[in-house]
Simulated assay, not measured.
Amino acid sequence: MADAILPYGRQTIDEADISAVAEALRSDFLTTGPRVEAFEAAFARVVDAPHAVACANGTAALHLAMLALKVGPGDAVIVPSVTFLATANCASYVGAKVVFADVDPASGLMTPDTLAEAMTRVGDAQLRAVLPVHLRGDVCDLAALEVLARSVGAVLVEDAPHALGSTMRFGAVAETAGDARHSAMATFSFHPVKTIATGEGGMITTRDGDLAARLRALRSHGMNRPPGAEPWVYEMAEPGFNYRLPDILCALGLSQLTKLPAFVARRRALTAAYERALAPLAPMVVPAARPAHSNPALHLMAVRIDFVAAGRTRAQVMAALAERGVGSQVHYIPVHTQPYYRALNPGLHLPGAQAWYETCLSLPLFPGMADGDVERVVDALAEALG
């Protein structure tokens, strides 16, 4: 076993980040202070959205989005099965029915066709929201998904933790992941392996000022301060949650956000190096398919591997990579196969999700990787596959 494993993802923290956090620690506000609004404003500018609301983590962002839309019992939410648990759980938290959509087996993404098929399984519930997941950083076909959702009175809520820095083009229009031009809201995560890190943290962007105000109340126990009221007066129209993001973490987020262009450029350079290095391993190993409209800042370097042709299981390949000092991960186990959701959806078979799961593997990708690390990873993968 190598002394140091190259992980599939890792934060990039420098002295400027540390100084920003230290300055926050020396300030009067450790939470609910000026750095929260500063981080929100800076993030909104970066993704070209009118409003951004910071919160405790990416899961809280999804939960708040459901609460802000007043999704509840009797409603349905469609999510792709290839995602992290939180995408489905946020609908379960509010008592809604979770309907799983299949995905394109080559990209892992929800498509207009897989959404249309899932819509036939909503049943008597009212479809309120569709949650496309920008897996790896590749953006779904939001323009087409929006048309389908609106045809039945639903809205999109983008699950975009992988996509900060990604851009896309629908027709002649250049857009930014998180600008919410096709959705009611977009949600982000700042977990350490994401594009920028705050330790834990999340953000919701929207173009709707009323939704933004509702999100801010719901993240802080449902409290609002009436205009002109005395400074100690607050009102709670409905229960909310303590989903605030402290100033200490917002200080780190502000510092990290200034490095986003450099992070994006480095991720794209590493991705291009991977594509060149992996080419000789085709067709046994190929990068995940990229939609024509998507220009990602990849969070994950996902490849599809024909383990059957290689004569090796994925577990064997991952163990062989680890012996050579290379970490890897699987994104994701289809959520509809988890015991809780399997009991609610007996017999549900989603062939695209299953095909993606059987072949996917995430290789190391983060800005701190050295130039030679890509060849090191690909050489180790070639050896692991024999």
Score class of each variant (00 low, 15 high):
3 D>W: 07
14 D>H: 10
14 D>S: 08
17 D>A: 11
18 I>K: 14
30 L>Q: 08
34 P>Y: 09
37 E>A: 15
39 F>V: 04
41 A>H: 08
43 F>V: 01
50 P>H: 13
51 H>I: 04
56 A>G: 07
60 A>T: 02
62 L>K: 04
62 L>E: 07
63 H>W: 15
66 M>I: 13
73 P>W: 13
78 I>L: 07
81 S>V: 05
81 S>A: 07
81 S>W: 09
82 V>D: 01
82 V>I: 09
84 F>D: 12
84 F>I: 11
87 T>R: 09
94 V>G: 06
100 F>I: 10
101 A>H: 04
103 V>K: 00
105 P>I: 02
107 S>Y: 01
107 S>T: 06
109 L>Y: 02
118 A>W: 04
119 M>H: 10
122 V>H: 08
122 V>P: 15
125 A>L: 00
127 L>V: 09
128 R>V: 07
132 P>E: 02
133 V>S: 07
135 L>A: 09
136 R>F: 14
137 G>N: 03
139 V>D: 00
144 A>K: 06
144 A>Y: 00
145 L>H: 10
146 E>S: 05
153 G>V: 10
155 V>G: 10
158 E>L: 12
158 E>R: 10
163 A>K: 04
166 S>A: 12
168 M>D: 06
168 M>K: 03
168 M>T: 01
170 F>Y: 07
171 G>Q: 01
172 A>S: 15
177 A>M: 05
180 A>K: 00
180 A>T: 04
180 A>W: 02
192 P>T: 15
192 P>S: 06
193 V>A: 14
193 V>T: 15
199 G>V: 05
207 R>G: 13
212 A>Q: 11
212 A>E: 11
216 R>H: 14
217 A>C: 12
223 M>T: 08
227 P>N: 13
231 P>G: 08
233 V>T: 12
234 Y>T: 11
237 A>G: 15
247 D>A: 13
253 G>M: 04
257 L>R: 00
263 F>G: 02
264 V>E: 02
278 L>M: 15
280 P>E: 10
282 A>M: 04
286 V>L: 08
287 P>I: 03
291 P>A: 04
293 H>K: 08
295 N>M: 09
297 A>M: 08
303 V>M: 12
304 R>T: 12
307 F>T: 08
307 F>Y: 15
307 F>K: 05
308 V>W: 12
310 A>N: 12
310 A>K: 12
317 V>E: 03
317 V>D: 00
318 M>Y: 03
318 M>E: 11
319 A>I: 01
320 A>W: 05
322 A>E: 05
322 A>M: 09
326 V>M: 03
332 Y>V: 13
336 H>R: 05
337 T>W: 02
344 L>Q: 11
345 N>T: 15
351 P>A: 14
351 P>I: 14
352 G>W: 01
353 A>F: 01
353 A>I: 01
354 Q>G: 12
358 E>K: 12
366 F>R: 05
369 M>D: 11
369 M>H: 06
370 A>R: 14
372 G>M: 14
372 G>F: 13
377 V>W: 06
379 D>M: 14
380 A>W: 00
380 A>H: 03
381 L>K: 01
381 L>I: 09
383 E>V: 15
384 A>L: 02
